[in-house]
């Protein structure tokens, strides 16, 4: 019955892994308060302001021709930049993950670069290239080609800022999967394209979707870079975020927040989809069931 006295002090299990209840409570409360004030409240303000004059005013603001043309332009720009970055993101990730070559680190750094450059600078570089005083400006003017203050310029700036998303999502995934399956396919007589579409693509589909999702969200929401190259021609070169700015500066708060609420909804949908995809990707790490 009586066990020998243990001489060393063993702390109660609770004490080892966690802090006293009071501290735990304070930390959780601080974390929640911080996120509520800085993240949740701004989001709530967007919707509250958009509907502050009622549902009718909200939809009336969205049905304005200016709003509709901004929505159309935003969708067009997103379609162009996402599809181009999708193709080149896959190729870039493929090259980096499956082959060894000199300058690989440099290539990765270059791909990451747009993330760390101010959006304003991303716009500026295209003004310097294609603007009236830019390197190609005089030539473009002579041939009557408009890049700046027109759709091509907005698309270029958007492609620049969204460049890293697809490649970044794919590189770790492709590296982890290695080249064995592709080698097997090739040795069994599959062509390069067959191998890509039948072996590689199915393996990376969730990662690809993840990259496209984030790329699209940024493409639709980009403000700084697009603002510099767009020229703010009403009904022509205003994307949704630019229209948000213009309406806000004209004190048309309901209209501004109505457009903003569409973008906020896009952000929320993106987040939900992202969370689901992340779970998929985590599951993908255990052997797949076919």
């Amino acid at each position: 019955m009586s066990e020998p006295q243990v001489l060393t002090y063993t702390p109660p299990r609770d004490d080892v892994h966690t802090e006293p209840g009071v501290i735990r409570f304070v930390i959780i409360a601080l974390a929640m308060l911080f996120l509520l004030v800085f993240v949740v409240l701004p989001l709530v303000v967007v919707f509250a302001s958009a509907f502050s004059r009622g549902v009718m005013a909200y939809f009336a603001a969205l049905a304005e021709p200016e709003a509709l043309s901004a929505i159309r332009l935003t969708l067009l720009i997103a379609a162009i930049s996402v599809s181009l970055n999708l193709v080149f993101g896959v190729i870039a990730a493929w090259a980096i993950a499956k082959f060894d070559f000199t300058g690989k680190t440099l290539l990765i750094t270059l791909i990451d670069l747009p993330f760390s450059v101010s959006p304003v600078i991303s716009g500026l570089v295209f003004v310097l290239l294609f603007g009236a005083q830019g390197f190609f400006g005089p030539w473009l003017q002579a041939h009557d080609i408009r890049i700046l203050f027109a759709v091509p310029g907005i698309a270029l700036a958007t492609i620049f800022v969204t460049f890293p998303f697809v490649a970044r999502a794919l590189i770790p995934l492709m590296q982890e999967q290695g080249t064995q399956e592709e080698e097997a396919a090739i040795s069994l007589g599959a062509s390069g394209l067959q191998t890509f579409f039948r072996v590689t693509l199915p393996n990376i589909k969730w990662g690809l979707l993840y990259g496209v999702l984030l790329c699209n969200a940024r493409a639709m929401g980009e403000f700084g870079a697009v603002s510099v190259v767009s020229g703010h021609i009403r009904g022509e070169t205003n994307t949704m975020p630019l229209l948000v700015e213009i309406l806000y500066n004209e004190y048309q708060f309901v209209a501004s927040f109505a457009i903003a609420s569409l973008l906020a909804m896009l952000a929320l949908i993106t987040l939900v989809a992202k969370t689901i995809l992340e779970r998929r990707l985590d599951e993908g790490q255990v052997p797949r069931d076919d």
């Binding site: 929401g221 403000f223 975020p241 948000v244 700015e245 501004s256 927040f257 903003a260 896009l266 993106t270």
Partner: peptide, 9 residues
């Protein structure tokens, strides 16, 4: 995820 202009206003 939130576009910067939306966060700004």
């Amino acid at each position: 995820a939130l576009p910067t202009a939306v966060a700004g206003i």
